[in-house]
Design a protein around this nucleic acid. Structure first.
Lengths: 217, 217, 217, 217
DNA sequence: AATGAATGAGGGTTCATTCAT
DNA sequence: CATGAATGAACCCTCATTCAT
């Protein structure tokens, strides 16, 4: 029994029912311990949520940075960044969803800190897009809308991707990169050659998929 | 004081904090009535949520159908469907968000009914895409992924669109249609000429934007 | 629509579920009127209960007095008093039950007044028994216990008597008189000849038996 | 603090004011605990009531059976059964009253189960009476009425018996047996010799009489 | 490390009652 | 005469949290 098991149980419930609708006793039961014992691992219910979100967003930021560092030109950087985003979301769908949906459940400074991390992550996309626009690799009417569309698209992966599904992760990645390229009208010359796309590690907070009650098509 | 005022207050709170985190007394205060009075207009808290979601989804379905009926070829139908989706989401951002996020708060048959409506709406997109693929107007590696990407993209509008923002609604619509066309590689020949795009009416459940506490950039 | 209809509806519910478990709206529905209208006929829920109990106990007292007045010797008086008690209980079973069970729901002076009426009625029995004991017509170890036993016995009629049942009311009356005579060891010489036994009128508060949901064997 | 203390507090209140008129907070206060703590000992308010009634009726049934087993002939069995009934009622007046009055507060299957127990107990009396009638030891016009009268009589003990009162428990028992014998016209030959009459143990749910607020004459 | 017991606060809901219409 | 709307208080129950063991 350790804190990561508690986190996994919490993420599974938070993703399915939401933070507010999940009780402490329910978390204890799901983790196989008494609800009072839970307080040995976690300061409070909100603290538990913040650890989950914080770990998730930090992993996204560092992973996103590494992805960008793996290419030199904006088009390549974007491809790798999107590929990472998709990989991360597909690998940690429940944690990612909790990090996105339940930030509103945080109060005060905790929420500000987490929002700052989220903004930081989004700025990675902004920067790559702005750089590419300047370099003439991207062509779109509205850069802000394009960024939002691309990110939203990738985040949606959490709703339907399954490791044992019809498409492999790398197929999904390639497809998303292709769609992004189309949206941004990237010229063939700027497109990157096939190279190994970034992957994402399984977070300690991501529940075991088999045991998850989540059922997506 | 009528039931629509109650619905608006509820949508504002549900969108901001979530259904589970919003108390009945809080709803009463927001609607300017005693919490007990609220039960003259609504059978229960869950019933209130169901009315909101149900009204929203039914409006989406009928609006989507009309949009499709306004064009003959799949490419034109898709353009109008996306334009409607964007218009609806931009006009009723909070209601749309509640309808999407809080369906999980429903229990039993209520959830099944609402999920059936949601599925119905999504099937409108599926049908248009399949028709277009058959007609050779669309070209994409994976039709399912394309559908999900296009819908997710449009739904994201709720997160940032503001009526008094930088872009007008029709500009946003056109931009999204353009992005969808790119994703699906629609040939210029199939693209529709500029024509009046569908709009969406303001739902009775959508809170007055000025009074909403929502703050999106 | 008049106050007696309201009383009948109230007695039916109070007898079945108890005063505290019966709501004002429920009473209105049962009487076919709005709950607010009910306040035109009755000052308050407790006032309604007091009217019912008061009417019932007063009818019992006056009926009991008349019964006693119909005979000269204690044995005859007791027979007539018991016969009346049985007749009253069998004719107004629900009202009688409410008057007995729900007096505790009254508060303050209202309860004291009703208790005084109840004590008055019981004193009728006490007096007859004491008179009979003095006159040598009754013989029992303990007069108080005999009185309680005889009264309790008769009250129990409310639990099972039905007008369309196996036994006619006069048969039941005779049987109870016989049992009381046995308990008190009344000598044959003191027993009254067969004469018409007292009856009891149907109270305005007694619900129509056919419509009553009460089911006793 | 244990569950029996809670039960005693509950019985005291239920007997005095009724189940429906007694609040959870009031029960907590009476038991000396917070109302929320009460839910550690009891699943719900209705569950608490059912435990009380169930324990009471089961004790009555087993005690009644043992009483019957202590004699061979119906007249003796009846004497012992009545004596037990009186002893039980006098020893546990409040619990017995709650078990009788508040069964109607139970809903659904719970009520059916309890009613079955009550019927079982009453069948003990029926059987003894029928046996005695067949054996020629009892003589009465109507056996059913006699049974009801005898039981009702005994149950009435709860309304007035007090351990420190004028009469000892065994005196009351003997008196009731004598009254029953008279009602049934038991011949002297069939009467049992004086023998130790059955007693009843104090139930865990019976409140301490001194602390009880009940005041009977 | 682990837990049963305990609690103040608040959950959603129903209550008896009032009053303008 | 009758009612829909309204409300403060109370309903039963669950909440997150603490603490002695």
């Amino acid at each position: 029994m350790d804190i990561e098991q508690v986190q996994r149980a919490a993420v599974a419930r938070f993703a399915q029912q939401g933070f507010a609708a999940t009780g402490i006793r329910e978390l204890g039961t799901a983790a196989g311990i008494n609800s009072a014992t839970l307080y040995h691992y976690v300061g409070s219910k909100q603290d538990l949520l913040m650890r989950i979100i914080s770990t998730c967003l930090n992993a996204m930021i560092s992973g996103g940075r590494e992805a960008i560092a793996g290419a030199e030109k904006p088009a390549g950087q974007l491809a790798r960044l999107i590929a990472f985003h998709v990989a991360f979301t597909a690998t940690n769908p429940l944690t990612a969803r909790v990090a996105e949906y339940e930030m509103r459940a945080l109060t005060g400074p905790a929420q500000e800190q987490m929002q700052a991390l989220r903004d930081h992550y989004e700025s990675l996309f902004s920067k790559v897009l702005v750089d590419g626009q300047k370099a003439g690799e991207f062509s779109t009417n509205d850069l802000t809308m394009a960024r939002l569309a691309v990110m939203e698209m990738g985040t949606g992966v959490a709703h339907w991707y399954r490791p044992d599904g019809r498409l492999s992760l790398s197929q999904v990645q390639e497809n998303f990169v292709a769609m992004a390229y189309r949206i941004l009208a990237v010229p063939d010359a700027a497109k990157t050659a096939d190279q190994p796309l970034p992957t994402a590690e399984l977070l300690a907070s991501e529940p075991n998929p088999q045991l998850s009650t989540q059922t997506v098509s």
